[in-house]
Design a protein around this nucleic acid. Structure first.
Lengths: 213, 213
DNA sequence: TGTTTTTTTGAACAATGTTCAAAATCGAGG
DNA sequence: CCTCGATTTTGAACATTGTTCAAAAAAACA
């Protein structure tokens, strides 16, 4: 019978799985140090000691490789933000605000620390026709949960849907400040100033929210 | 004597200038309809009825072409936002807030209307080593002025520098919501909802600002 | 008109992702 | 341990791109 997926128990499949993993690692390393734009099939083949064509036995595309690395980055980001989210207790609104700020600062730190991996998440454009893979939505749900939780304390009067929308808005807004600030397309802003900016933005927004309730 | 720049008064220079303009127009059209990633030197040569190599007599690079188109886009954006900025009078804080919202909505509309041109502004990454051209800073100063003006009304107690930073923060935040919202990398958000989001964000932030003063 | 200068041309090159027929390798049966 | 069919690996070849440059064409000039 023709199996499409290699049996991961057989020695053949084991070897294959190992190579694929090494390929992903190599891609991740290259993206992390030189940016997604400088990923070369031939370099990767050299990295894992395999012929050029073999890349295409392990992966259908270079794009698939980039997506896989993106998935890993998103998971790391989720972990980092989750950690920051537990840093502050959150019984009162003040605590909730601090937690939101902590998450935002962690986001900025992640972006600084994994500059190229983080950029790859947003720079990468799917080839026309392919749609966003499932893991994106999955990981994003996790991340958003961390933001919704403080919002439950800050805007208890609002419906869940409103809070979800606010979480989306805040995430995007903070992302905008971090993204444009760090990569200095317009004006390069030092990390500490970016932190100040997101902090100010969140404090003001939350002040507005509390006033509203 | 060897002139490097073609004399734009001589018939030779005239012709050259004309071709260059047609090239820029062709590039702009192609970017506007298919995105910057699908710009091809050969296509452009065909568009303006010229041999492949001639492209490089009119422009040093395809990148230069993209930068020029970016400059034009930024100028259009500046004009659009400037128009929106005059829509609301601004004697009192309420008017200032409305003006900020009007500008943000215009920004969203511009992004929707000139989707690919607008994206090209942010997607394009300068080749390593080259730095941001001057016109970027120039046009951005214009754009920021439109944001700083309402802020003068909203936070008169703050130093000019603080207001400039706030303008930067607000621009980036709105950009983030528009950018991630429209291009639906995570979740595709319809234009009206994006407008709601930026409006809410600005109202809350401004409420916070007024409270602070 | 003949000569010199400038411009235009398009063939050629380099870099890249991807394919595929052939070679190498493997695994099971004798 | 050897053989043979199946599977995997290989790397040469192809397609697509940006860019260059020697030669041809055009223009300017005397």
């Amino acid at each position: 019978m023709d199996r499409k997926e290699a049996d991961s128990a057989s020695p053949r499949g084991r070897q294959r799985e190992n190579q694929r993993e090494r390929l992903i690692l190599a891609a991740e390393t290259r993206i992390a140090t030189s940016g997604v734009a400088s990923l070369r099939a031939r370099d990767l083949a050299g990295d894992i000691g395999v012929a050029l064509g073999s890349i295409y036995n392990l992966v259908t595309d270079i794009d698939e490789l980039i997506l896989i690395v993106g998935s890993r980055t998103l998971t790391k980001l989720d972990a980092a933000l989750g950690e920051a989210a537990t840093a502050h207790a959150m019984a009162n609104p003040a605590g909730a605000i601090e937690r939101l700020i902590a998450i935002a600062h962690r986001y900025r730190a992640f972006a600084s620390q994994h500059r190229f991996l983080w950029r790859a998440l947003f720079e990468f454009r799917l080839a026309e026709g392919r749609d966003v893979p499932d893991w994106v939505s999955a990981d994003l749900k996790h991340i958003f949960r961390n933001i919704v939780e403080p919002l439950n304390t800050l805007m208890p009067w609002a419906e869940a849907e409103k809070r979800a929308l606010m979480a989306h808005t805040l995430f995007c807004a903070v992302h905008g400040v971090v993204s444009l600030g760090l990569q200095g397309k317009m004006v390069a802003v030092p990390a500490e100033v970016v932190d100040q900016e997101v902090e100010q933005l969140l404090r003001l927004t939350c002040a507005g929210l509390l006033q509203e309730g």
